[in-house]
């Protein structure tokens, strides 16, 4: 990363693993649970958040000196909401199919506390460029977790990935199913997203002992 100074690179790299927004900062859990039954939805959501957080962080950072502290929450929310609504309207007008896939997430993006959390904790106090990197880094860290959970839930729950059967056909009993394997439909239910997430955290903290809470 010749373009970025060491400090800037850390802004992107840290949130990917050691300071991951989902598993360490506990932000953005709701959406991680709501949409990870399918890998595709997880990827779409990850990209949408990347986009909104990147731009939103820059906007908030640009405005950081003129936002009155008393109404900063409202201002932050209005910025996200406006951004998301305009994107939604543009998509509806010019890419209707895509907007149908995304429309489910519009509400979830606005209320995703990752976005507010980064506005509040970072963009309000840092320069636009750094805020942009921070936004991208955190959104990517969020995306990684989402894709991981989505991968396991779709694979174990429905035996497919991105809608393509990978373990054989459960009705015709081919592939793994011929050996008596069954899909665990329970994985598709939201409680299992929590438990999957718990196990991911377990794995992550077993590797990096410094993250263990006392």
């Amino acid at each position: 990363m010749g373009l970025l100074s060491k400090k800037d690179a850390a802004l992107i790299k840290d949130p990917l693993f050691d300071n991951n927004p989902v598993t360490i900062q506990v932000l953005g859990i709701c959406s991680a649970l709501a949409i990870t039954a399918e890998l595709e939805a997880s990827i779409v959501m990850a990209i949408a958040v990347l986009f909104v957080l990147g731009i939103g962080n820059v906007l908030i950072s640009l405005m950081r000196n003129i936002i009155p502290s008393k109404i900063r929450i409202i201002v932050q929310l209005v910025v996200v909401a406006t951004l998301v609504i305009i994107v939604d309207l543009v998509l509806k007008a010019y890419a209707y199919e895509l907007s149908k896939t995304l429309s489910v997430f519009v509400g979830l993006i606005i209320t995703n506390c990752i976005i507010m959390g980064r506005f509040e904790a970072f963009a309000l106090a840092n320069s636009p460029w750094q805020s942009f990197l921070d936004g991208i880094g955190n959104a990517a860290g969020y995306g990684i977790i989402l894709v991981m959970v989505g991968f396991f839930r779709e694979l174990l729950g429905a035996g497919t990935l991105l809608g393509i059967p990978v373990l054989g056909d459960p009705i015709e009993k081919t592939g793994l199913y011929a050996l008596g394997y069954e899909n665990n439909g329970f994985m598709l239910l939201a409680p299992m997203a929590l438990i999957t997430l718990g196990i991911i955290i377990w794995a992550q903290r077993s590797r990096n002992k410094a993250l263990i809470e006392d």
Binding site: I24, V26, L189, P191, A193, G198, I201, W202, A203, R205
Partner: peptide
């Protein structure tokens, strides 16, 4: 609790179990 699960990890799992109960 296994050290790596302490805190957030075990909370997730408990919440999952509670959610199953609430179902």
């Amino acid at each position: 609790v296994p050290p790596a699960l302490r805190g957030l990890g075990i909370t997730f799992i408990i919440t999952g179990l509670m959610a199953i109960g609430f179902m």
